[in-house]
């Protein structure tokens, strides 16, 4: 069977087709859920964030012009919702590269992760500042180019590369700690 393109599903969803919208969700929910896991560190928060993201996407669906890929647009919204998620969680914390935005230690829910490496990686990512975590997430898990990441985060390409470079140094140490 030929799969419908994202644009076709969006068009149908905008006309009120719930089936098309669910098909679009099905196409991206796993990626967004995993994004949520790595960005929040807990399945529960990941599920909440995922719902927030898809609600926001549906509300903004008519604004999608099709200039870029839907996936890039979706992850841009996901990033904003993730920032909002942390803002709600810690209203007084500035959203910069400070360590305040990172999780201090892994939660018990991490043990739900089936794979030890995945669990270690998720734990290590939680120690990164949100902005660095977002760059790592989008580059290695989202498979976006630096230009696309820069566009999504509203940064320059060089800033994104710089943040990634810094994040990798920190992540290496954290992974070593995880593996003990």
């Amino acid at each position: 069977m030929f799969e419908k393109r994202d644009e076709q599903l969006i068009e149908q969803a905008l006309k009120g087709s719930k089936k098309a919208w669910f098909a679009l969700i099905k196409r991206y929910e796993t990626g967004i859920y995993q994004y949520g896991i790595r960005m929040t560190g807990t399945p529960h928060d990941a599920a909440d964030l995922m719902q927030d993201i898809f609600i926001a996407v549906f509300k903004s669906l008519s604004n999608f012009r099709g200039d870029g890929s839907f996936k890039a647009w979706l992850y841009r919204i996901a990033h904003f919702r993730c920032i909002e998620f942390y803002r709600r969680k810690r209203p007084d914390t500035p959203l910069d590269d400070s360590e305040e935005l990172s999780c201090e230690r892994p939660t018990p829910e991490h043990s739900l992760m089936s794979d030890i490496t995945s669990q270690s990686l998720t734990n290590a990512m939680q120690r990164l500042p949100l902005t660095q975590r977002a760059v790592i997430e989008l580059k290695f898990f989202g498979q976006f180019t630096f230009e696309e990441i820069a566009d999504q985060l509203g940064l320059s390409s060089n800033t994104v590369k710089s943040r990634l470079y810094s994040a990798l140094s920190k992540l290496k140490l954290d992974l070593e700690v995880e593996h003990g």
């Binding site: 905008l14 006309k15 009120g16 719930k18 919208w21 669910f22 969700i25 929910e29 796993t30 859920y33 995993q34 896991i37 399945p43 599920a47 995922m50 719902q51 898809f54 609600i55 996407v57 549906f58 509300k59 739900l112 992760m113 089936s114 794979d115 490496t117 995945s118 990686l121 790592i136 290695f140 898990f141 990798l168 140094s169 992540l171 290496k172 992974l175």
Partner: peptide, 29 residues
């Protein structure tokens, strides 16, 4: 580390997808 991350990204195994309310995301226009 980047190479390790690439491998980890391919092998990443998250917890199973929870049952979530997809209907809540659909607001009939």
């Amino acid at each position: 580390t980047a190479t390790q991350l690439n491998v980890a990204a391919e092998q990443f195994s998250p917890p199973p997808m929870p049952a979530w309310d997809k209907n809540a995301t659909f607001i009939a226009p």
